[in-house]
């Protein structure tokens, strides 16, 4: 931690620097906020008004475009698809990931490092580059156009980083805790479930955010595997929508607001957790 940079008692040169930095930060905050604000305002305007007065506020709060997009254009369904696919994927990422982390961090055996490295290699390998064999594999299994195809890939996407982060936390738990439980008659599963998992609960929250955000946002794999509108998640639904209604600005801004606002609201309430979670892989 370094000393605070404040105007009080600063030399003239430093004062100029501080003011410059403030101006830069304020400008940048505006560059982030204004496009989002304009997006929300535009969703209440008609296409005509958006094009004629792009900076004007809406005359009245007209929610009709929301009803059109959410109900008639199927965004309610896309949203629901994103929710359940992300939830199911995350349940398995957390279950399989924490089990594997337990398996590589709480036992000593010959193949341990090899198994650990095998999991870690998944962090570096770009999964998109393997789309051709993945497609053939899913086709052979009959999973194309079924949600299970992307859910399996999402689970594989989340596992390496989950195992990496969780095993780091599990290594720091003292063995004595485990011995005590064993004397009380716990088997390995009970130790994992009743001793280790409660202790690493904060790390679980971390990896949940770290993986749920990219899964929620993923577009590439649904694009390849899910043609059926019944199963499209939000990013893919948004893409098709942009292809179909590319000149109806009012509906486009409404669709974007529906895609972006829920994440923004969630962030306002849990900013600290999101920042910690998303940077978990890069910050020791």
């Amino acid at each position: 931690m370094i000393s605070d940079l404040r105007l009080k008692n600063a030399t003239p040169g430093k004062k100029i620097l501080i003011i410059f930095v403030q101006v830069a930060f304020i400008c940048y905050s505006l560059i982030i906020f204004y496009p989002l604000f304009n997006m929300i305002m535009s969703s209440f305007k008609s296409t005509r008004d958006i094009l004629r007065f792009p900076f004007a506020l809406p005359q009245k709060l007209d929610f009709s475009s929301y009803k059109t997009v959410w109900v008639d254009r199927g965004f309610g369904r896309f949203f629901f698809n994103s929710v359940w696919m992300t939830t199911v994927s995350m349940i398995f990422v957390l279950l399989f990931g924490s089990m594997a982390a337990y398996g590589v961090s709480r036992y000593v055996y010959r193949m341990r490092t090899a198994v650990y490295m095998l999991f870690l290699s998944g962090i570096m390998l770009p999964l998109k580059a393997a789309i051709i064999p993945l497609f053939m594999l899913m086709k052979k299994l009959g999973f194309v156009d079924k949600p299970i195809s992307v859910i399996l890939i999402f689970i594989a996407m989340g596992l390496p980083s989950t195992i990496f982060i969780l095993s780091g936390f599990m290594k720091t738990i003292p063995k004595d805790l485990e011995y005590a439980a064993r004397i009380d008659g716990c088997n390995d599963w009970m130790i994992y479930r009743k001793v280790i998992m409660p202790v690493i609960a904060p790390a679980i929250a971390l990896v949940t955010i770290y993986n749920a955000v990219p899964i929620w946002n993923d577009f590439f794999f649904p694009l390849v595997f899910l043609q059926n509108p019944k199963y499209k998640p939000l990013p893919l639904g948004l893409t098709n929508f942009f292809g179909q209604y590319s000149t109806d600005w009012s509906l486009l801004f409404t669709a974007l607001t529906i895609a972006i606002l829920p994440v923004l609201i969630l962030y306002i309430f849990m900013a600290k957790n999101f920042i910690k979670g998303m940077t978990a892989g890069a910050v020791k």
Partner: peptide
């Protein structure tokens, strides 16, 4: 403990 994750990583990441 390790086989479920190992199976998924093997089939979806390494095999492809």
């Amino acid at each position: 403990f390790i086989s479920p994750a190992l199976a998924v990583v093997f089939v979806i990441i390494l095999l492809p």
